[in-house]
């Protein structure tokens, strides 16, 4: 009995101590009677209804949150991508023209017209970065795929530098929230220009090679997981192959049906072989003879262009200096022959 009493006394002491430390909490925790409870439920219901009427909450920029320090964010970002920036070039790369105009307008409204406090925007950096990345991507593709016709190099480059894919890169390296712009959410074009400005800033701070390395590690690496062969598909496959053989002064390629399986089923399969000068040069399968012929011509073309299907290994770790010093352009498709490739 004595122990129970002791416990009770202890619990009272504990409760008192809690009361002392957080008075407000105790006041709020009143016991609701039945009437009060009903009122409370009504209020919650009403609040819920109004919330529903108001629709989903408007998304706020991360920069408007309490826990936000732009300078630390910039520092962490540079560490994340493993680059160093000089003289606030990183902040300049993130400053859009629209943000500068907005700031000037607010300063005018406040009556501050200080010509020294002019923000620099990223337009010059973006131009520089875009030039570098367009040039470097083409050089890289020419080094990695020396036998491919020039038109296909251009098409792969255009695919890599599509605004959507470049914008995707910038939002996936955590730089979307760092862009200083008047619009929210940021538009694709804003993100693209910021990405190029970032490359320009790297080039300005650490040199051309470092900027090119960034392009290699983020733009070229985004080719991983994508089908390169799908990007280099000529429209008339067999005709392209025929033209190449005629240009080389050889016998035109001759397609032949090698074998077929399940012709009377819903999934027939035909296999077409392509021969030139009595030599077998390629095979392809398809659900119809035309498909099989197209696939066979493609397999021959890809083999000649140095990108054999499923066997080709794209090099992602080429030396940047070697790529930058490569000034050769590939042979255009209208003049493409095997002799022109082998003499290189």
């Amino acid at each position: 009995m004595a122990t129970i009493r002791g416990c009770l006394a202890a619990s009272v002491l504990f409760r008192n101590s809690v009361k002392k430390s957080c008075v407000k909490y105790q006041v709020v925790r009143t016991v609701y009677g039945r009437k009060q409870s009903d009122e409370r439920a009504d209020m919650i219901r009403e609040l819920f209804k109004r919330k529903q009427e108001a629709g989903p909450e408007k998304k706020a920029h991360r920069g408007t949150y309490l826990d936000w320090n732009y300078k630390s964010e910039l520092f962490a970002f540079s560490k994340r991508i493993g680059e160093t920036f000089m003289n606030g070039s990183l902040e300049r790369a993130f400053t859009q023209r629209s943000y500068v105009l907005q700031q000037e307008a607010t300063q005018k409204d406040l009556g501050l017209d200080d010509p020294d406090r002019v923000l620099e925007d990223n337009r010059s950096l973006a131009e520089k970065g875009e030039e570098l990345s367009r040039d470097f991507v083409a050089r890289y593709l020419r080094t990695a795929l020396p036998c491919l016709p020039e038109e296909n190099i251009q098409s792969i480059r255009d695919h890599l530098l599509k605004p959507e894919s470049v914008a995707n890169i910038i939002s996936n390296i955590g730089a979307d929230e760092l862009i200083l712009t008047s619009e929210f959410p940021t538009e694709i074009q804003t993100r693209v220009s910021t990405f190029y400005a970032l490359i320009g800033a790297i080039e300005e701070s650490s040199g051309q090679e470092r900027g090119a390395l960034f392009v290699r590690d983020f733009i070229i690496a985004s080719l991983s997981g994508q089908d390169i062969n799908a990007l280099i598909m000529p429209e008339n496959k067999f005709e392209t192959l025929r033209e190449i053989f005629l240009r080389e002064g050889k016998e035109p390629p001759e397609p032949r049906l090698i074998s077929h399986v399940g012709i009377n089923t819903i999934i027939p399969s035909y296999r077409v072989g392509i021969y030139s000068e009595k030599k077998h040069i390629g095979t392809g399968d398809g659900e119809s003879v035309k498909d099989a012929l197209d696939n066979a011509s493609l397999s021959v073309l890809w083999k000649m262009w140095g990108v054999p299907d499923a066997v080709f290994q794209f090099p992602y770790q080429l030396d940047v200096g070697q790529v930058l010093s490569n000034n050769q352009t590939n042979v255009p498709g209208s003049e493409w022959t095997r002799e022109k490739i082998s003499c290189r």
Binding site: R80, I169, I173, F218, A221, S222, Y316
Partner: peptide, 9 residues
């Protein structure tokens, strides 16, 4: 973003 193909982040 093909993390690890280029540089690791």
């Amino acid at each position: 973003l093909g993390n690890g193909v280029g540089r690791f982040m």
